[in-house]
């Protein structure tokens, strides 16, 4: 396939896509864990907030989230900052808007994955941790979280694939990702089919790599099963 000298542009776009996806994954995992903890907490307000969060996000298009944060985010932030007496102009660029929107979306679905995984952990695990003299937070990080992690990996792997594909939406607000760079190439070559097809193939490679990595992680997080699978 003749890329007519636009190969480097597509590579730089791929790098931006990967950065966006990984940053959103990290922030999104925090949202997901917080959401799950809130859903399982004894505090009714936390539960109510978390349910509101997941219900809202799961009914709203990701594109609408990206657009709202990109075009309305600075207005909202300046209003919040203004009430603390900070009056400087705040601007939200496409990358930050993208990370915010995608991690909010990822977090809502990850909340469910983590919640299911946490519910799988028997109460006895908590009790034995406490019985060994560990504090609640130490029990959580040493005993519960590693097991939740193992149970959550397959679900999170699927969600990451969705996230990876959703990064394409951020090109609509001008981020120079794979999609945007393909469009730049198309504007001078007039070959939309060729370049969108190349973009599609790059995404296929990325999703395939994600699948492979998820399988690796599943094995790494599960020492018990490693022996069986050889």
């Amino acid at each position: 396939m003749d890329l007519q000298g636009f190969g480097h542009l597509l590579i730089s776009g791929t790098w931006v896509t990967i950065q966006l996806a990984l940053s959103s994954l990290l922030v999104g995992l925090v949202f997901g864990l917080t959401g799950a903890a809130a859903k399982l907490s004894k505090n009714p307000i936390a539960r109510w907030l978390a349910t509101g969060y997941t219900t809202l996000v799961r009914g709203l298009p990701e594109l609408l989230l990206v657009l709202t944060i990109y075009f309305g985010g600075s207005q909202l932030l300046m209003w919040i900052a203004g009430s603390f007496g900070y009056t400087e102009y705040i601007e939200i660029g496409p990358f930050v808007a993208g990370v915010a929107a995608l991690s909010i979306a990822f977090g809502a679905y990850a909340t469910e994955v983590f919640r299911m995984a946490m519910m799988e952990i028997p109460q006895g695990q908590w009790e034995s941790g406490l019985a060994c003299g560990m504090s609640r937070s130490r029990t959580f990080f040493r005993i519960i979280l590693p097991q939740v992690w193992r149970l959550a990996i397959p679900g999170l792997g699927n969600l990451f694939q969705v996230l990876l594909k959703d990064t394409a939406l951020v090109s609509v607000v001008g981020l120079n990702d794979i999609m945007r760079q393909s469009q730049v190439a198309i504007s001078s070559t007039k070959e939309p089919f060729t370049f969108f097809m190349v973009a599609a193939c790059i995404y296929l490679l990325l999703t395939a790599a994600t699948t492979a990595f998820t399988m690796f992680m599943e094995r790494a997080a599960n020492p018990a099963a490693r022996g069986n699978r050889g």
Partner: peptide, 22 residues
Amino acid sequence: YFFRGTPLLVQIFLVYYGASQF
């Protein structure tokens, strides 16, 4: 595999802009 592994945005652009290349 193709349709689940690529973004919907690419697919819609392939149909709308891509087809008109030919």
